[in-house]
């Protein structure tokens, strides 16, 4: 019995807000993302090559010099742009926009031209330079909901697609729409300061919708016209007093 046709276009439009005033750069989201999405650790050699596989990274910027120095954190993940630059350039449709505003990566379709990565202004796409190395006992930890990616494939933040689908399935089983807060990507769920919020921006009562329409909300690289689904909430005042 599924009374709700949740496939209907525009029922959901997933969005995230990042409160820069709350983020304290602890990095819990980074590891949560790695744990949830079977992201391999690349190891020392790969890191030396300058590679990393952080679907969610916390960018750190320094302003000023001692003693008036300010360090700022900027969590950066796939922005799930409405007009995503990565989609149009993929020669095989391995990345496309689904009807819930998600920018989806089809691993099996990807041939690895890496064009999408070049065209992403946020540089949030990552490439499997080698086969992931989950040897021995570490396999036990792998999340069965998330497929492993072989070498030669682009990947990126999915807004924890598997959680969204589970949330919708559960809601459908109960014959209702997804409630605000039902679905939380791993990073949002773990964020100790509550800097991250996730929800359906089409629902005007959802927290994410309210935050995204508050005066503090901005999009990164707005001038590029990518219309990201991730909104950043600007920091506070310039000084304390």
């Amino acid at each position: 019995m599924k009374s709700f046709n949740y496939k209907k276009h525009n029922d959901y439009k997933w969005a995230m807000t990042v409160d820069l005033d709350r983020c304290d750069g602890c990095g819990a989201c980074v590891v949560a993302c790695q744990a949830e999405n079977n992201i391999p650790s690349l190891g020392v050699e790969q890191t030396q090559e300058g590679r990393n596989m952080l679907w969610l990274r916390i960018e750190r910027y320094i302003e000023g010099s001692y003693p008036d120095v300010k360090v700022r954190f900027l969590p950066m993940m796939c922005q799930h742009c409405d007009t995503a630059p990565c989609e149009s350039v993929c020669p095989v449709y391995a990345t496309y926009q689904n009807n819930e505003g998600l920018n989806v990566q089809v691993y099996n379709r990807c041939v690895g031209t890496r064009f999408c990565g070049n065209n992403c202004p946020y540089s949030v796409r990552y490439f499997n330079w080698y086969d992931p190395d989950f040897e021995g006992k570490e396999k036990n930890q792998l999340n069965p909901d998330v497929s492993l990616r072989e070498k030669g494939i682009m990947e990126k933040c999915t807004f924890c697609m598997q959680r969204i689908r589970r949330g919708k399935d559960n809601a459908a089983d109960e014959g209702r729409e997804v409630h605000d807060g039902d679905i939380k990507p791993a990073c949002v769920q773990t964020c100790p300061t509550g800097a991250l919020e996730f929800g359906n921006i089409n629902d005007h009562h959802s927290r994410v919708s309210k935050l995204a329409h508050s005066g503090r909300a901005i999009s990164l690289f707005e001038e590029k016209g990518t219309h990201p689904s991730v909104k950043y909430l600007k920091g506070g005042t310039a000084d304390v007093f």
Binding site: C26, A28, V30, A35, E135, K137, N140, Q141, T190, P192
Partner: peptide, 20 residues
């Protein structure tokens, strides 16, 4: 309050650590 820090997130890796 439903949150977890980086150490808690990484704890599963200790369970299935190959050097345990």
């Amino acid at each position: 309050n439903g949150r977890a820090c980086v150490k808690a997130q990484a704890a599963v890796q200790r369970v299935y650590h190959s050097e345990r």
